[in-house]
């Protein structure tokens, strides 16, 4: 299936589905591992439940699941501070949960109910929380990169000491406005960390088939933006790299690029059979590099956490997710009058 392989191009080996863990892995304390475990598990279980509700016809339209990529957003959040902004594309449920948005509100938005974060008017790709500094949820590939740079522009303008975490996929990283934004962010030294979640496929097109430069950490090179490739399956390496990037941005040195090498287990969206990659590739990642399983093992083997304790966490997470699904299936749809609200804000006299 890999055209690069057939042609024997060197690019193919760079794209071969082998995941190389980083050397010198930083260690987490038991509490940090427990925190990461719980946060990632919540995303995993939430997404599985969303997939189930989609299968039952309760979630409509598009639904892009984050399963497999959990370590990226959880590690980033562990390095950030309150008030830092987050913005991403359409694979956004994990980011919202990691930002502290409630599972109930997210799930109810997926089912298009009035208790959803956007009162049922946004859907899977369009949720926001001013309180949690989550700025969406954007459905136009790459648009969030300019918008996230704008958040950082405001941070610099207001001199508030905050940083914008602007996420994009390997697909979005090829959009023109990304480089317009890199240019201005570097020019004006804006406090933004660009997180490129390289899950190897832009919908069904592998990185090697879409990108002349497959090392995304180099994408800011000509603007003088430092970048690094990060093992995005290991929450510890994510947090460490994130801390470096955030310090750089917060201290006024400008933008920073993190290429998170990660993997999505599911298709691009619910209606994607994912025939562009082999089953072995998927199961190898799942079996050998699962971000949650790695932490689980560590908690038991290195930190001596009893399995029963982890089962307790599992049960709690399942309870939150089940409650969110229950709420999202029983909460009423928005009132018909909502059709005409939130189009314009009233101008104050």
């Amino acid at each position: 299936m890999d055209a690069g392989n057939e042609a024997g191009k060197p690019a193919a080996s760079a794209d071969a589905p082998q995941h190389r863990p980083a050397p010198n892995i930083p260690q987490f304390t038991k509490d940090e591992d427990l925190h990461a475990y719980r946060e990632m598990l919540l995303i995993r279980r939430f997404e599985e439940k969303a997939g189930q509700l989609y299968g039952m016809g309760l979630i409509g339209g598009f639904c892009h699941l984050y399963i497999g990529q959990e370590a990226v957003v959880v590690g980033m959040q562990m390095a950030g501070e309150d008030g830092d902004q987050n913005i991403t594309g359409y694979r956004d449920h994990g980011h919202m949960l990691a930002c502290g948005m409630e599972a109930k509100g997210v799930m109810a938005e997926l089912t298009g109910r009035r208790g959803g974060y956007s009162r049922g008017k946004g859907g899977s790709m369009h949720m926001f929380s001013r309180e949690k500094q989550f700025f969406g949820g954007h459905g136009i590939v790459g648009a969030q990169v300019s918008l996230g740079t704008g958040l950082a522009f405001a941070d610099a303008y207001l001199q508030n000491g905050k940083v914008s975490f602007t996420y994009m996929g390997d697909g979005a990283a090829n959009q023109g406005q990304v480089y317009e934004s890199f240019n201005m962010a570097a020019l004006w030294k804006l406090p933004v960390v660009y997180v490129i979640e390289n899950n190897r496929y832009a919908m069904g097109t592998s990185v090697a088939r879409a990108s002349a430069q497959t090392d995304f950490s180099k994408r800011g090179l000509s603007f003088g933006i430092p970048g690094e490739q990060v093992d995005g399956m290991d929450v510890r390496t994510v947090r460490e790299a994130a801390s470096r990037a955030i310090n750089h941005a917060r201290s006024g040195q400008g933008p920073y690029i993190l290429e998170m090498q990660t993997y999505r287990y599911r298709g691009h969206s619910m209606s994607d059979p994912a025939k562009y990659r082999s089953k072995d590739e998927v199961s190898k990642m799942r079996d050998e590099h699962d971000p949650i399983e790695m932490v689980r093992k560590r908690l038991i083997e290195a930190h001596g956490v009893p399995e029963a304790d982890l089962k307790g966490i599992d049960a709690k997470v399942r309870e939150i997710v089940n409650e969110s699904a229950d709420f999202a299936t029983h909460d009423p749809e928005p009132d018909a009058s909502e059709l005409w609200t939130d189009i314009l804000l009233e101008a104050r006299a």
Partner: peptide, 26 residues
């Protein structure tokens, strides 16, 4: 220069930056 900002010739990018700044209340 903080409030009167020359941009490069990149309409797509600076329009998006403007919108992002407006989301923040500017």
């Amino acid at each position: 220069a903080r409030r009167v900002v020359d941009t490069p010739i990149t309409e797509h990018g600076f329009a998006g930056i403007g919108v992002g700044a407006a989301f923040m209340g500017l």
